[in-house]
């Protein structure tokens, strides 16, 4: 009967050491790349970010050509000089990239609750926190590579578009390399924020709405409706995740604004607080 086949245990092949963090990382990597929609979503993020940067580069040259004098056009847009526009072209897809990565971060964890997969995850790693940390780490690294990679490709694509207008720039120009790297850093931190929200809410729709509300709606509300309420509101708006992220990829820092490192500290604090909250809540609650 079939049970005699079952009864032949393969202790030799399966006995070995137990759970460790490297193994959980590997497991989470397998989980990430074996759901087709995740891979598709990541590819779309890369394509959208590169596409937006190319469009932005082309639009810049068109604008400058129309107005004849590059110097003049730059002044009309209120920017100090042309390079401060062109040099941030590599990361110009970030605004959409962070919404896509944010949504995906929520989906990756909330879908585990939605489908029941979380029970398999937590039975395999019953201490729970290492499982969540591994998932966060894998996705944060992927988000970084997507962001920095897209920005680097965008930089390369933008040069031939900008060259006819003599707007081309180099990786060695001031702030350019940091801008490209930080496009990845912002996405990585946004990924952690979104996945933590997904972990706390355990619900895909609720998590995506909350994340988009935090990244997109809240800054608009603060800038328009709430700004008149008190003097400190616009001041506090600098500490929203989206504003802090913008400063991380800025090349020219306006007076009174956060610089790149301060932006990184603020966004990092958002990520850390939400991450710790999500870990503590998951450790305590029933799965």
């Amino acid at each position: 009967m079939s049970h005699t086949a079952v009864a032949a245990p393969t202790r030799g092949t399966t006995q070995g050491s137990g759970v460790n963090f490297m193994r959980i990382l590997k497991s989470e990597w397998i989980k990430l790349i074996t759901v087709p929609s995740t891979v598709i979503m990541l590819s779309i993020t890369v394509i959208v970010m590169i596409g937006l940067a190319a469009l932005f580069a082309w639009q810049t040259t068109v604008l400058l050509d129309l107005q004849g004098d590059p110097e003049m056009a730059a002044q009309m847009q209120g920017a100090p000089d042309a390079t401060s526009i062109t040099n941030t072209i590599p990361g110009s897809g970030l605004i959409f990239g962070q919404l896509l990565i944010g949504s995906l971060g929520v989906v990756l964890i909330a879908s585990e609750w939605g489908t029941g997969m979380i029970r398999s995850t937590m039975v395999a790693v019953p201490k729970r926190i290492p499982a969540l940390l591994a998932k966060q780490a894998v996705f944060a690294v992927v988000a970084f590579v997507v962001g920095a990679g897209s920005a680097l490709v965008s930089y390369l694509i933008a040069q031939p578009i900008l060259t006819p207008s003599e707007l081309e720039f180099g990786l060695g120009d001031e702030g350019v390399l940091m801008h490209i790297i930080n496009t990845g850093s912002v996405l990585a931190l946004m990924a952690i924020i979104a996945m933590s929200i997904g972990t706390l809410l355990r619900n895909t729709a609720g998590g995506v709405v909350t994340t988009i509300g935090l990244l997109l709606i809240l800054p608009i509300l603060v800038a328009t409706l709430l700004a008149g309420i008190a003097d400190w509101v616009p001041d506090a708006a600098r500490f929203l995740p989206s504003s802090a992220g913008e400063q991380m990829v800025a090349i020219t820092i306006a007076d009174g604004a956060l610089n790149q490192w301060q932006g990184a500290l603020v966004l990092g604090a958002w990520a850390l607080v939400l991450l710790v909250a999500s870990l503590l809540v998951t450790k305590k609650r029933d799965v």
Partner: peptide, 27 residues
């Protein structure tokens, strides 16, 4: 076996088991 629905619906059975096995270094 706690619940038949403890699997991500978009993943294949093989990949689901592979991901679970990976946590323990099961070949």
């Amino acid at each position: 076996l706690l619940d038949a629905k403890a699997v991500h619906t978009k993943r294949s059975a093989y990949n689901h088991l592979r991901a679970m096995a990976a946590t323990h270094g099961i070949p």
